[in-house]
Computed example of a mutant assay.
Amino acid sequence: MATVFVEARPKGRPEGSPITDYVVEDHADHVLGTFKTQKEAIDWTRKNGHSPHVARVRHLNDKKTPDHWRAV
């Protein structure tokens, strides 16, 4: 299973501003899919044989730092 990352967009948004959508990205920041909800994104990743991870804290999302992510 490939590890993929579910992230809220827009990236770097100010605290309290709305989330427009969620993207599924690989380690190289390539967008694999865009979804309205985090649940839809996670369900899609599992259906396609990936291991989804989400950021522990939204503004800490460096893919090279495992502590920033948790498996769902």
Rank of each mutant, 00 (worst) to 15 (best):
A71N: 15
H53A: 12
P52F: 08
G49Q: 05
K11T: 08
R58S: 08
R46Q: 06
K11L: 15
S51P: 00
S17Q: 13
V54A: 04
A8K: 11
K63L: 01
Y22V: 03
H30R: 14
R58M: 05
H50V: 07
D67W: 11
G16L: 03
I42K: 02
F35D: 11
G49N: 06
L32Y: 04
A71R: 15
E40P: 01
E40T: 06
D62P: 00
P52G: 10
K36A: 12
V72Q: 15
P66A: 15
P10E: 02
M1H: 13
D62S: 03
K64M: 09
H30K: 14
T34M: 08
V54Q: 04
L32G: 09
H53K: 13
F5Q: 06
V72P: 15
A71K: 15
T20N: 00
K39D: 13
G49T: 06
M1N: 13
H50I: 08
R9E: 12
A8G: 14
R13A: 13
L32D: 08
A8Y: 12
V23I: 14
A2G: 09
I19P: 04
R58G: 06
T3F: 02
V24T: 15
L60W: 05
T45S: 11
N48G: 00
R46W: 01
K64W: 09
T20V: 00
P52V: 10
W69V: 11
H50G: 07
R13T: 06
T65W: 02
F35G: 10
R70P: 06
T3M: 06
T65K: 09
L32R: 08
H59I: 14
P14A: 09
E15W: 12
H50E: 09
A41I: 06
E25Q: 11
L32T: 11
D62W: 05
A71M: 15
R70G: 08
H53S: 12
P18D: 07
D21N: 08
H50Y: 14
L60R: 06
R56N: 07
P66D: 13
G33F: 02
T37F: 02
K11E: 13
D26Y: 02
M1I: 13
D29C: 10
G49I: 08
T45N: 01
E25T: 12
K36I: 09
T37R: 03
S17H: 11
N61D: 12
D26I: 03
E25N: 10
H68F: 05
N61M: 07
N61V: 04
Y22A: 03
D67P: 12
R58T: 10
N61H: 13
T37M: 03
K39H: 12
K36V: 12
W69Y: 12
G33Y: 01
W44K: 01
K39R: 14
D67T: 14
T37N: 05
A41S: 04
D29M: 11
F5P: 08
E7R: 14
T45Y: 00
Q38Y: 00
P10K: 04
I42V: 10
W44V: 01
P18R: 09
V6E: 02
V4F: 03
H68I: 03
L60P: 00
P52N: 10
D43T: 07
P18H: 04
A41Q: 01
D62Q: 05
V72H: 15
D21R: 07
I42A: 01
V24C: 14
W44T: 01
A55E: 09
H30W: 10
H68R: 04
